[in-house]
Design a protein around this nucleic acid. Structure first.
Lengths: 241, 241
DNA sequence: CATCTTTTTAACGAACTTTTTACGCTCTCC
DNA sequence: GGAGAGCGTAAAAAGTTCGTTAAAAAGATG
């Protein structure tokens, strides 16, 4: 199952709550604050939506019809570290402690003020985005192949331990190839991604750039060590299966 | 001044509260849960302790004698990203919103249950340790690189022991680069952070400011000692691995 | 209101990227 | 075998970006 595409500009929030009034109420508040929304009225669909769309934050009501809210939380924490704000009508301290220790990031007691909830949402999203959580961006961005060490977020490339300087376009091409590791990336796709949709036919740009890239990476085009060319189609990065 | 050593096994919590009963009460609860403690009864010593010992978490009372709690929070957030749990007797929603948007990670209204507070402490420490926060791994707000000594909370910079005056914008840029030590900071990000979102394209502002900064810090752009430029992308501060 | 500091604007040379142009190579297909 | 398409390399030309300097404008200070 692949991650379905969604607007990556707006932060996406999943609401799991059975009360339609609360969902309605949250929907209006959150949408006007510029969030994209997903909604589920029971734990199971909530978990499903979370798995498929990997939202940036989950607002979870503890009182659900099909399963206990803490079960949902526990299930979620099996594989995801998405921030969770728990809502509950119950103000029992032990329940708060339990939810927080199960992995909730915040606990808000109903009835609550919208502004406070929105502020807590901002707080969670803020601290979540600060560290680069692997599950948020999908995969690790550090590659080690042969004498090559590539750190995408640090934008650092080492060949035999020696740092290598890449130009912006060189780096962009390498990144696209790397993120599709093993798979072929079409020439027109690379051209569209990096040069823009008006240059999808200027394949010689690519040939020259790939040449320089191979040179800088210490790659021999006759042996096709790192960057393999698929004649007539495109290029692929070899190394990680 | 270097970072003072302290027991790195136990998480260290700084309590900033003027009421000695509350401190006593928290001290007992937190110590039995295995935390190391620091205490301050006003904002100024609190900030000082935080700068010197860089605790893993701060519990901050909003009602302090010497300065407003939100001032302490704002001052702290100038240079530190340590998690902060705010305590307050006031249950006004706007105050919660303000504190959370100023950078607080949680807000607990007095009177509160110990168990809940302890659970919230655990939650903050947990999510703080997940991402690799620079200041979590022992780095403080005081930097010593080569002949350079930078004290962010004191706003003081020494080159070869000589104090150097920086303009507000120079200091802001240096701070952003420093807090992202090693990582690249995009030009547009610096421009957005310091000049505001309307100047994200005025890259020449940055070039001039970086030039002056390098000059004042005694940095040679041909040797790329402190501030390294990543052509076409942005800048990074070198020195601390 | 005058002075000093800080920020913004303008201009220019140097270094670097990207694009253009040109040429050699291999492979397929007629 | 020859023509043409696709790929790789090399070097020159064009275009950007970077760093520096200098001066004008704006803001702060007394």
């Amino acid at each position: 199952m692949t991650v379905l595409t969604r607007d990556r500009e707006k932060p996406c929030i999943l609401i799991i709550d059975d009360e339609s009034q609360i969902r309605h109420f949250l929907r209006i508040s959150l949408k006007t604050d510029g969030y994209e929304l997903l909604e589920a009225e029971n734990g199971e669909t909530g978990l499903g939506l979370c798995a498929r769309y990997s939202p940036d934050l989950v607002i979870l009501d503890l009182g659900l019809p099909d399963m206990d809210g803490s079960e949902v939380l526990a299930g979620l924490r099996e594989w995801s570290s998405v921030p969770v704000i728990v809502l509950s009508v119950r103000d029992r301290e032990q329940e708060k402690v339990q939810a927080l220790d199960l992995g909730a990031n915040d606990y808000v007691t109903k009835p609550f003020g919208v502004d406070e909830l929105l502020a807590r949402v901002r707080t969670q999203l803020r601290s979540y985005n600060k560290g680069d959580h692997p599950s948020a961006s999908g995969m690790s961005a550090i590659f080690d192949v042969g004498a090559l060490h590539i750190d995408l977020p640090m934008r650092q490339i080492l060949v035999d331990g020696e740092p290598v300087k890449l130009t912006p376009k060189e780096f962009a091409v390498l990144k696209v190839l790397l993120l599709a590791s093993g798979k072929i990336v079409t020439q027109s796709q690379l051209l569209k991604d990096i040069w823009g949709p008006t240059h999808t036919s200027d394949t010689h740009y690519l040939r020259i750039l790939i040449g320089r890239l191979r040179q800088k990476l210490g790659d021999d085009p006759t042996e096709q060590c790192y960057i393999q060319t698929e004649p007539g189609v495109g290029y692929r990065f070899l190394g990680i299966s």
